[in-house]
C-alpha cells in the first residue's frame, strides 16, 4: 500500500545531502553535537527528542527515538511520562490561548 510515510525512508535521510552537501554537512555535524553527552546525558537528550517527536508528530523521529531511548537505558514508563510532558505543553499551549479569546470577548461584548 502506498503511503506518504515509509519506514525505510528514514535510512535515506543522508541522501538529502545530494543537492546541498554543505548545508547537510553542517546540519548533521550540528545534530551529532547536540545529541552527544554534555551537561545533559545522552539518555536525557533522547527522552527530550522523543517528547518533541510526539509534539511535531514525526513518525520517523518517534521510531528512531523510541529505540534510542531504550538503547540509552530508559524504560517504557519513563518514555510515557516524557510523551505526557509533550502533551501537557502542547495542550497547555492551546488552552492558554483561551486567554486571548477571553480578552477579545471582553473587548467586543457589552
Amino acid at each position: 500500500m502506498e503511503s506518504y510515510y515509509n519506514p525505510s525512508d528514514l535510512a535515506k535521510f543522508g541522501e538529502i545531502a545530494e543537492e546541498a552537501p554543505e548545508m547537510a554537512k553542517k546540519f548533521f555535524d550540528y545534530y551529532g553535537t547536540v545529541f552527544a553527552e554534555g551537561e545533559l546525558s545522552e539518555r536525557e537528550k533522547a527522552l527530550i527528542a522523543l517528547a518533541v517527536a510526539h509534539s511535531v508528530q514525526c513518525p520517523y523521529c518517534i521510531d528512531a527515538y523510541t529505540t534510542a531511548c531504550l538503547e540509552k537505558g530508559s524504560n517504557q514508563a519513563e518514555m510515557t511520562e516524557a510523551v505526557h510532558v509533550a502533551c501537557a505543553i502542547r495542550g497547555g499551549a492551546s488552552l492558554v490561548h483561551g486567554v486571548q479569546m477571553m480578552n477579545r470577548c471582553k473587548k467586543v461584548s457589552m
Partner: peptide, 10 residues
C-alpha cells in the same frame, strides 16, 4: 527486546 544494550559504563 530487539534493540541494542545500553553502553556498559553508563
Amino acid at each position: 527486546g530487539a534493540f541494542l544494550p545500553v553502553e556498559q559504563s553508563r
